[in-house]
C-alpha cells in the first residue's frame, strides 16, 4: 500500500477552530449585551424611584424604610432619610449631647464664585434681630467662629467673607478678603497661612478663626451676628467650605442655641431599588438663601443719597 500524505485533516482542524472561536465570541457578546442592557434598565428604574423619594421628602420631613409608594413593584424606594443640619447639641434627635462643641456645618463643594450662606441666627425666627425674649436665645452669640475652605494645595482658593450683623440700630456688613498665596496681578487680599484640617466630610486646606485677634490685623467679630456669606475665588475645581462654632456648649447650659449654629438646611438621602440594583441620591436643601447677585446690588426702601 502506498504511503499517502496529505493536509486535509490539518486544514479541517484549523477551519473548525476558527469557526468555533468566532461562534463562541458572538454568543458571549450577545449574552453580555443582554445582561448589560437589563442591568442598565434596572438602574434607570432604581434612579427614578430614588428621585421619587427626594420629591416626597422635599414636600415635608420623611423618614422611612421599604417605603411602599408604588403599586408596580418593579421598583421601590428602599429608604428615605431627612436630617436637619446642623443640629444643636442637647436637642431632641441630635446625636451630640450638651457639653461638646457643635460639629461643623459643611457645605457641598462650591464652584468658583459660587456663594455659600450660613445663618448665625435662626432663619425661621419672626422677631429678628431680637435674639432673646423666647425660651432660649436664638442667635449665635459667642466671640469666636471658625471658617474652613479649600481642599487643594495646588488649586489654591481665595475667599471673600461677608458678615452681616445688627449693630443695635441697623443691619451692617463687614467683609474680609483672604488669600493663601500671592497673585499676579496683586489683589491686595490679606495673606493667611494655611494648614490642613480634617472635619467629618472633607479635608480643608485653610482655617481662620473670626474673633481671634492674634492674627495680624485681627478678625474682630461684632455682636448681633445674623449670617455669613462666602465666595471662593481663583479656584478651578469645586472646593468645600464650612463654618463651625468656636466654643463648646457648657454642659450646665440650659440650652446650646447661643453656642451653636442654628438648624438651617436639610440633607435628604433617598435610595431606590430595582431587582438587585440600588441607586442613591443625596440632596442638600438650605432655607432662605439670598441669591448671589444680592452681593452686588443695592436695594433701598427709600431714596439713596450719595
Amino acid at each position: 500500500m502506498k504511503n499517502q500524505r496529505g493536509q486535509v485533516i490539518l486544514l479541517l482542524i484549523v477551519i473548525m477552530t476558527v469557526a468555533l472561536a468566532i461562534g463562541l465570541s458572538v454568543v458571549q457578546k450577545s449574552l453580555v449585551d443582554v445582561s448589560t442592557a437589563s442591568k442598565v434598565e434596572q438602574s434607570s428604574r432604581a434612579f427614578s424611584a430614588a428621585e421619587a423619594g427626594i420629591e416626597k421628602a422635599l414636600t415635608g420631613t420623611v423618614n422611612c424604610t421599604d417605603c411602599q409608594y408604588f403599586s408596580d413593584t418593579s421598583s421601590t424606594i428602599k429608604q428615605i432619610n431627612t436630617n436637619s443640619i446642623p443640629c444643636v447639641p442637647g436637642t431632641t434627635g441630635c446625636a451630640q449631647e450638651a457639653g461638646v462643641r457643635q460639629v461643623a456645618f459643611e457645605y457641598p463643594p462650591l464652584a468658583k464664585e459660587e456663594v455659600a450662606q450660613v445663618w448665625l441666627a435662626d432663619p425661621t425666627a419672626t422677631n429678628l434681630p431680637v435674639c432673646t425674649g423666647g425660651t432660649y436665645n436664638i442667635c449665635y452669640t459667642q466671640s469666636r467662629l471658625d471658617v474652613y475652605w479649600g481642599n487643594s494645595s495646588i488649586d489654591k482658593a481665595a475667599i471673600e467673607l461677608t458678615l452681616v450683623y445688627y449693630d443695635g440700630v441697623k443691619y451692617t456688613s463687614r467683609k474680609w478678603y483672604l488669600d493663601q498665596t500671592t497673585r499676579d496681578p496683586v489683589n491686595g487680599f490679606r495673606q493667611v497661612s494655611c494648614s490642613s484640617t480634617t472635619l467629618i466630610s472633607y479635608i480643608y486646606q485653610c482655617k481662620v478663626t473670626l474673633g481671634d485677634n492674634s492674627y495680624a490685623g485681627g478678625f474682630p467679630l461684632p455682636t448681633g451676628l445674623m449670617l455669613i456669606r462666602a465666595r471662593l475665588l481663583y479656584n478651578n475645581t469645586s472646593q468645600p467650605f464650612a463654618v463651625q462654632a468656636g466654643v463648646a456648649c457648657p454642659a450646665a447650659a440650659g440650652s446650646c442655641t447661643a453656642y451653636s449654629l442654628p438648624p438651617q438646611a436639610r440633607m435628604i438621602t433617598s435610595t431606590g431599588t430595582s431587582g438587585e440594583t440600588q441607586r442613591k441620591i443625596q440632596v442638600f436643601q438650605e432655607y432662605k438663601v439670598a441669591p448671589p447677585y444680592f452681593d452686588y446690588a443695592i436695594f433701598s426702601a427709600g431714596e439713596i443719597k450719595k
Binding site: S48, A49, E51, E55, K56, T59, Y69, F70, S74
Partner: peptide, 13 residues
C-alpha cells in the same frame, strides 16, 4: 416593555 415610575412634586427637582 420598559416602565419607569417616579414622583414629581411642586418645587421639586
Amino acid at each position: 416593555s420598559v416602565s419607569l415610575n417616579t414622583f414629581v412634586g411642586e418645587g421639586g427637582i
